[in-house]
Every structure is written in C-alpha cells, then in structure tokens.
Write a protein that binds this DNA or RNA. Structure first.
Lengths: 202, 202
DNA sequence: GCTGTTCTGCACCGATCGGTATCTAAGTCT
DNA sequence: AGACTTAGATACCGATCGGTGCAGAACAGC
C-alpha cells in the first residue's frame, strides 16, 4: 500500500484550526461547558457553525480538544513540576504554577479543569466526567512521583504518596476556586507557601 | 394603624414552600445553576412553573433562596465552627464540617457554594456573583474570628488573620472540588488533618 | 477545460430555554 | 350568599439551544 503525503484534496479551510481551538478554549475556560453556547464559541473562533462541526466534530469533541490544548498550554506547568529533582520542589512548583496560571492577566481567572464543568445537568455530563478524569490523572501522576521519591529516599519512609498527592491537588483546586472569585496572585502565593510549610522533611 | 394577623386571604397553596425549596436546593447543588432547568426544578419540587414563580419570584430568586437555605442547613457547620473557643478549634471544625457536608450520603457530592455557578455564561452571572459574595462572606467571618484570636492572645501576635482565613477557605474549596470528583470522606479528612498540621502554635 | 472533493455562508430544523396568559378551583372576607 | 383574592393546570410565548441541508465557491487531479 502506498501512503501519499500531498496537499489534501478539496477546498482548503480558510482559518487556522489551532488558533480557533485556542479561542474556543478561552471561552470554555471563562464560561464553562454549559455556559458556552455554540454562538459564543463560533463567534470567538471567527468561523461558522458548519466549519466548527467539520473541523472538530461537535461541542463535546471541541471541549475535549480544548482541554487537551489547555493541558499542553496553560497547564503545562504540571508536567514541568513533575520533573523537578525533589518531591519538595515538585510540590512547590506545582502550586506555584497553579497560582500563576489561575491568575494570569489576559486569561480567564481560575482553572479550566475545575470550572469547566464542576456540576452540570445531563447535557454537560460528558464534559464533567472528562474533567474528573483529568484531575484524577493529574493526581495519579503526583502520586507516582511521590512514590518514586519515597523509593529514592527523597521522602521519609513513612510518607504516604497517595495522601500527599491528594493534599497538593486539593490545595491547587482550592487555589483555582479562589482565583475564580478574584483572589490575587500574591494572596494565593501566600496560601501556597503556607500549605507547604508542613511538608514532610527528609 | 391596625395590623391583623389572620390567615392569608385567597386560596391557600397546596404545597409546603419549605419542602419545595429544599428540593430545589438539592437540584441546584447537584446540577449547578445553569445545569438546572425549570423543568428539572419544578419536577423535583412537585409544583408547576406558575406556582414556583408565584412563591419564589424567578429562577435567580429561587437560587438565592436555595443558597440561604443551604447556608442555614447543610452549611451551618461554618457558623458553628466560628463559635469554637480557640482559633485552632475553629479551623479544625470548619474543615471537618466541610469534609462531612461535601461527602454526606444522600446529598449531592461537593458544595453548592462552589459548584453552583463557578464559571458561567451571561445567564448565570447573577448566581455566580452571589456565590462569590457567599464565599467572600465566609472568608470575612473567618478573618474576623482569627483577628479576635490574635487580640485575645489565642494566636501569636505575628499571625496574619487575613492569610489564615484565606488558607482555610482555600483548603475547604479544594475539598469541595475533590468531593465533587468522588473523593471519600476519610480521604478528605486526612487532607484536612494535613492542612492543619502547620497551624501556628500559641 | 472538466470532475471530484471539501470548505463556507445562510437558512433552517426540532427541542428546550425561562417566563406568562388564561381559565377554573378553592379558599377568606363582608 | 356573593364579592374578592389567590393557587393550580394547561397551553402557550418568543428566544435560544445544539446541530444540519443546501447551494455555491475554491482547491486538487486529470
């Protein structure tokens, strides 16, 4: 079989799909899944409903793709934090990234992974479940990282990676809620610092 | 002028308004403001749209009244916590109440004051603002209580009531998000305990 | 050129949204 | 009894919801 890598047949689309997805992500971030209508979304994306459906499937698929983009964009601080050399640095960077992303000027306040669909009616259930899985995934990565830290002696043998991961994720979620309510970056960084003051020593 | 306290004139309503409001609160709690349609609400309340409008005004007013009921019902742990004799006990009771209310069997998981309308489109802005004010109020009460504790020597003179209040509220908000994602009561109580381990000593 | 394929713009779909008009039933008042 | 007031049921309102059908425009390969 022969795989050809040519220009796609047919009329090329007249918009940048990446740019459109970025705009959609911002609308979901600010208004949540149910609060963002197709009219809001396509207006921000600068395309028609038909083009959106052709390029992204439907509203649920668009949300999923916006969430992926969020993970690799504004929420990339999480992956970077996990690569820090010590558990203490992981936790510190994770919370600092959470503070800075939820209070970034020019972006919606808060976290898409929290306020995108925290509670919803039937129509938003898919988005809600996607975000629960997203947060669970983040927590699992923290847990594995802390388990590794225990194995490597970076955390004391009695440390509980499961609980520590949930603790950090809980504080990050709380920071997101506070940011959505208008808390400032410095106020939240103080909170993050306080939350780490009892971090288990080596 | 003479004020008469008689039975109201006209046909008496055929439903218990308190009971109906309780049911509406549960729907808002589970589905959020925008996710709860009038059909969902009135079906759960067991009354018609017309009766709901006559008794409660409109959807926004119904939400506000449901939030009041939530404050005096499921969220009454907050007021009780503020009356504890020491700041340490206030913080401990506040977080324990938050854990137990957000994970109560038979009630929706999470906190109405968080997931009721964390992010929304234009139509949910009123509810969103009401919840921001609700959380701000709770935080202000904690701050005043902690300020009193500083004045009374219950907290060290260097303690920052503003920051401590925001810290406790942030952890409580995070607990609510975690509960909405299915975290169990014992898991969250561990998190609450961890969050208090660095509480400023006397 | 022509044909095939895909994108765009617009009108439109049925369903549901929050909210109401109308009529009748069920009470209190004089 | 009869006037008055309010609750309840039904049907309905215009607007908006997520999602499509259709005709024409813009590209590829031939």
């Amino acid at each position: 079989m022969e795989i050809t890598r040519r220009a796609p047949i047919g009329r090329p689309r007249g918009f940048d799909a990446d740019e459109a997805l970025e705009r959609a992500m911002l609308v979901f971030w600010e208004q949540g899944y149910e609060g963002a209508s197709l009219t809001d979304l396509t207006r921000a994306m600068g395309i028609t409903r038909k083009s959106m459906y052709a390029a992204f499937g439907n509203k649920e698929e668009l949300f999923r793709k916006a969430l992926e983009r969020y993970t690799e964009g504004p929420a990339a601080y999480a992956a970077r934090a996990l690569e820090k050399p010590s558990a203490q640095e992981v936790a510190t960077a994770f919370l600092a990234g959470s503070v800075s992303t939820t209070t970034r000027p020019g972006c919606p306040a808060g976290c898409l992974g929290v306020q995108g669909s925290l509670a919803s009616g039937e129509s938003g259930r898919v988005a809600q479940d996607a975000l629960i899985a997203w947060r669970d995934d983040g927590r699992a990565r923290l847990r594995h990282r802390f388990q590794r830290a225990v194995d490597e002696g970076d955390l004391p043998p009695g440390a509980d990676p499961e609980m520590l991961a949930r603790y950090i994720m809980t504080v990050a979620n709380g920071i997101a809620v506070q940011a959505a309510g208008g808390a400032t970056r410095s106020e939240l960084q103080q909170v993050a610092d306080a939350a780490l003051r009892n971090w288990p020593p080596v």
